[in-house]
Amino acid sequence: MIPVGFEYSRPSTVEEAVAALAADPDAKVLAGGQSLLPVLRLRLAAPTTLVDLRDVESLHGVRVAGDDLVIGAMTTHDEILHDARVAEHAPLIAAATATVGDRQVRHLGTFGGSLSHADPAGDLPAVACALDATMVAVGPNGRREIPAADFFVDYLTTALAPDEILVEVRVPDTAGWGHRYEKFNRMAQAWSIVGVAALVRRVDGGVTDTRVALTNMGRRPVRATAVERALTGTAGDAGAVTAAAGHADEGAEPPSDVNGAADYRAHLSRVLTRRALTVAVGA
């Protein structure tokens, strides 16, 4: 219940934050804390410094820059749910965010925090992958952009260096695309057993683009490329959706745990992909 003691720093600029991280190799970023605090309380981690980003103004909020939606890493789930620009440009994010945690968690938890935590059972990493989002990080050597596909490296591991901070996420405009986040969990409050983030663009009825990414079907989000290939170019009819969804688990290495064995997850991914695409093609 009581974390191991640590130093606390609350910088007001990204540069100060990066410096604070660089000063202590065992420092950790505190964003909303909704994943970190339980870990600290159970003493599963014991950072020696927490760098609280709450006062770094530039990390908060949502804006539109050119064709991209730019979401500050410290934007809370609740802010995203109430943001008209997110609803318009990237409704898939809003749909998935509504399923994250519970209302208390959504008040504190942040978009950037969820992505940086890189829990394979978390919902937003797959969404970021499906959207082909770009992660913008700042470290001692400056700013760099990391495609979502490269950002999630392994279980609870991202491409961020220990002294790098995720500052914002750039999301290409998917207004007008059909979308669906199909989440399957055992209890309302529970993590996804499997989740499916789906985006479909149709022109004159035909499917021109398909993006499908899976939650908790491996140690990091899985892009279901076989599904995407199978559906793109079809008429998006039920038969095509069902056939495409049958490829959902191709190449995935789903985990086995108390919430589901690998074969069950593989099965679920096919069913849920069909359901997600059925909604997404309908838009």
Binding site: M187, A188, Q189, A190, W191, V258
Partner: peptide
């Protein structure tokens, strides 16, 4: 987290 007592939902 794992024992999952049910919520109202």
């Amino acid at each position: 987290v794992d024992y999952t007592p049910p919520s109202a939902a």
